[in-house]
Each structure stands twice: as structure tokens, then as C-alpha cells.
């Protein structure tokens, strides 16, 4: 069975088979990135517009490289240089871009659901590069690719997601992806940073880090933004680090071969001890590498490829 892969808006609406198909394709794309000539003609003549209306370095450059390695023409528009900063509505901005006949718009936006909204109004494909506190689907896909490289099938594996789950689109996308792939997902963090009824998404909720990471195969640490302290959600970063940070002591509770992940950018010494970020368990830079491969796969699919259900 196959269906056209029109947009990538979220992980929630993907099936397990679709996720595995994307990941399988990403593996092939990863091989392209390992060559000395890192370019294939697959998307020659296709146009990709990156519309990054919220700050992004990693994701933006990852999508750009992904597009270029597939020979697509890629332009990026960022928040401060765009007409949205001149008071144009998102819909008008997007309709104007659509009128120039791109094949794909990659959107990052601070408003949850913004990609879903524009997807219903444009002819081109839309890829969600992070919407508010909703989802960041390509991040979850690259995380799964990285985990599967180290752990094989994720069926029955235990993944602990630690930190500011409330404000994390990465956590939400990963909970969807991991539960679909059969992993046991745990979330841990202070109650002030834990969204209400997160358990309904299929994760087991822990208040303390230690029980959450005990016997985990994967420990995924989330970024703590300094605004959380200013908003009164935590007393200060020192205390956060002491009670909710992941470090070389509490990581010993995880499985001996457990890997440590982080979606970046890292606040070294706050949510994650620097030695651990750079240590042998860390796969943080591999995540970045897989990011390009996964985005190549996604761009290929939305620009015309079909998605076979496994």
C-alpha cells in the first residue's frame, strides 16, 4: 500500500509503518552524506522555501543542506527579515510564497498548529520544522534514527525524556514516535514543567529523575530555557541542575550501554553535565548528522515520492 506523502505536519498522524519507511529512506540518504561527493540529482528543478519565523540555526541549516544535497533550489527566509515583521499576516506571507510555485515550504513558527493552518491553504507541500509547543516531527524522526542505530528495534526499549516537557515540542513528537515504535516512554521533571495529563499521551510520568532513568536504554535530556526561571517555574538553574539535571552520577542508574541524547542547543552544566555531553555515552552529534539524512528523506517524499506502508 502506498499513498502520496503530501505534507509532514506531525508525528501523531503517521502510522508505525510510515515512520519506519521514512527511517529506512533516511538510512539511504545517510549513505549519500558519507560520500565524497555529497549530492544526488533527485530533486533537481524543485524549489524549497524555508520560512523560519522563529529563531533556528541547527534546524534551518540542516534543512538547507538536506535540500542542497538532493539538488533542490533552497531559499531561507527568517523572522526579522520577513514581511511578517512588517505586519503582514502569516497567511498572506505564505500565499505570496505559494504564488511563486515552490514545491515545499518548510515552516518554523511559534504558534502551535501554524503548519496545519497553512497546509490547508497552499498548493505546495508543507513540512513542519517546529510549531510552538506542539510538535517537531523531523527531530523525533532523527532521534529515532539515532536510537535505532545504537539499539536496533525500539520495541520494548525504555526511553527516559528528562526536563522541561511542558514547553517541549521535541518531547511531544518523540512520545508519539516512540510509543508507535513500541518503546516504553518515561517523562521526568518538576511538576511546574510537566504538562497536565501528559500520561494520556502514553508516557509514564515521574517527578524525580533517578527512578525515571533507572534501567533506561536511552536518556534524552531537554533544554531548559532561562525564561522558565524568570517565569517562576523553577527557583534557579543551580537548583534545577542539582535535582533535575543529568550527570555522570545519576546516569549510572541507567543500563550500562545507555546512550545520552539532547536536541540542542545544550545549556552546559544546567540540564546536562558537560563531561557527559562529550563522553562516550553521548550521541548528540550523531543526532545532528542524522538530522540531515532524515530531512533529505522527508523532502524527497513530500516533493513527489510515495510512502509505502510497511
Amino acid at each position: 500500500m502506498s499513498r502520496p506523502f503530501r505534507h509532514l505536519l506531525d508525528i501523531e498522524s503517521l502510522t508505525r509503518g510510515e515512520i519506519l519507511t521514512i527511517l529506512g529512506l533516511a538510512q539511504k540518504m545517510w549513505e549519500v552524506s558519507e560520500r565524497s561527493v555529497k549530492k544526488v540529482p533527485t530533486l533537481r528543478g524543485k524549489t524549497i522555501v524555508g520560512l523560519f519565523l522563529e529563531a533556528s540555526t541547527r534546524t534551518r541549516s540542516s534543512f538547507e543542506l538536506a535540500g542542497k544535497r538532493l539538488s533542490a533550489d533552497v531559499i531561507n527566509i527568517s523572522g526579522s527579515g520577513s514581511s511578517t515583521s512588517k505586519g503582514e499576516t502569516l497567511l498572506d506571507t505564505v500565499k505570496n510564497l505559494d504564488a511563486m510555485s515552490p514545491d515545499v515550504i518548510v515552516l518554523r513558527h511559534s504558534s502551535s498548529g501554524a503548519p496545519h493552518f497553512i497546509a490547508s491553504r497552499v498548493r505546495c507541500a508543507v513540512v513542519n520544522a517546529g510549531d510552538g509547543t506542539h510538535e517537531h516531527p523531523t527531530q523525533a524522526l532523527l532521534d529515532c534514527a539515532t536510537m535505532m542505530k545504537h539499539k536496533g528495534s525500539l520495541e520494548g526499549k525504555t526511553v527516559a525524556i528528562v526536563g522541561d516537557v511542558a514547553h517541549s515540542r521535541v518531547a511531544r513528537s518523540n512520545i508519539h514516535a516512540l510509543t508507535k515504535l513500541g518503546a516504553n516512554v518515561r517523562v521526568a521533571g518538576p511538576r511546574t514543567l510537566m504538562p497536565v495529563d501528559i500520561g494520556a499521551m502514553g508516557a509514564t510520568v515521574f517527578e524525580r529523575v533517578e527512578p525515571a532513568i533507572t534501567d533506561a536504554d536511552v536518556v534524552m535530556v531537554l533544554r531548559l530555557q532561562s525564561e522558565r526561571q524568570e517565569a517562576g517555574l523553577i527557583p534557579n538553574t543551580r537548583e534545577y541542575s542539582r535535582y533535575f539535571g543529568v550527570n555522570s552520577r545519576n546516569i549510572e542508574l541507567a543500563k550500562p550501554d545507555a546512550i545520552v541524547m539532547h536536541p540542542g542547543p545544550i545549556n552546559r552544566g544546567v540540564e546536562l553535565e558537560p563531561e557527559l555531553a562529550d563522553g562516550s555515552r553521548s550521541v548528540i552529534l550523531e543526532q545532528v548528522t542524522y538530522g540531515v539524512a532524515v530531512r533529505m528523506a522527508v523532502l524527497y517524499l513530500v516533493a513527489g515520492g510515495t510512502l509505502d506502508e510497511g
Binding site: S112, G132, R169, P195, V196, D197, A200, M201
Partner: peptide, 18 residues
């Protein structure tokens, strides 16, 4: 706040109104 605070607001990532 954008909607009621609960399982739905958590899932779709909108700030909740408790």
C-alpha cells in the same frame, strides 16, 4: 492561555486555561 488546560491542550501544544 489558548484553550482549556487538560489532556487536549497538552497533546496539541496550546497553553492551557485552568
Amino acid at each position: 492561555a489558548q484553550m482549556n488546560e487538560g489532556a487536549v491542550s497538552t497533546r496539541i501544544g496550546l497553553r492551557g486555561w485552568p
